[in-house]
Amino acid sequence: MKDYVIKKLLLGVALIFCVSFLVFSMIYMMPGDPASIMAGQLSSRENLEAIRHEYGFDRPFLVQYFDWIRKILFERDFGISYKYRLPVWGLIKTRIPISLKLTVATLIIENLVAVPLGLICAYKKDSLIDRLAVGTSLVLTAVPSFWLAAILMLVFAVNLKLVPVAGFESWRNYILPIVTGVVSGLASTIRLTKSEAMDALREKYVITAYAKGLTKRGVLVKHVLRNSLIIIAVNLFLQLPWLISGYIIIENVFGIPGMGNLMVNSIVEQDFNVIQAIILIITTLTVVCNILSDIVLGILDPRIRIAVTGGDR
């Protein structure tokens, strides 16, 4: 197991480096030059040169890249935001917890709703509750989240005045964004749970378990549920990065100052250092979640555990 985790970690680190390289080259691939953005369009050539020199844009590409990496790793310095003229880390630091709070809450609520529903749908396939749950969630997922966010806001905040329209001061501000997030992820989790549980129900070992004389309850809990939970647990971790990117737009609609909000603003302003930092953070989070899901899978499924460890437990 230890070798397995170490291998996954090394792969993850390598992946993050690859992404960081791509992200850093972005500056050179995109139109516009950071110096001219900082100086403004009408700045003189001398002024531009001075800015280039001051920020080190005139150095060779690789030197700049490794300098950037070194600063991030050892000084937690992601550079300066061209727009705010403030350290990027300082800008992001306060926004990470807000985004994480939103996504984790969404994740938990979504799974608390979707997993039991999926199990019921699988067990009572083709019943009213199955059709209702699958149909409704499918329609809701097909609705774009920004549109849903706007509609929810109109109905519950503007017309009914049940919750505040925007802001982030009280927990009530988070209700609508979380509902939006939950709704847009619901169908996929319900369907995943349902199909996993249905596969498990169809397995021969379920017949073996019945033939053994176990009651329905015993079979469902000990054989069906346990076996379908593997994929559900893995899915939990894999959903997190998706949700974070999903919130890039929802945060903007509700005016919640999370990472997504900052990211959109930075893209508009061509604030490269901020964009790079956020992409890097989301990448790292994705990689970490993937590693975690692999580890969970290894713990829950003995077939994988043994395949990766050669039998030491």
Binding site: Y205, I207, T208, A209, H223, I230
Partner: peptide, 10 residues
């Protein structure tokens, strides 16, 4: 019939 699938793999 099939011992490959009639045991719970977990």
């Amino acid at each position: 019939q099939d011992p490959m699938t009639s045991l719970n793999p977990l």
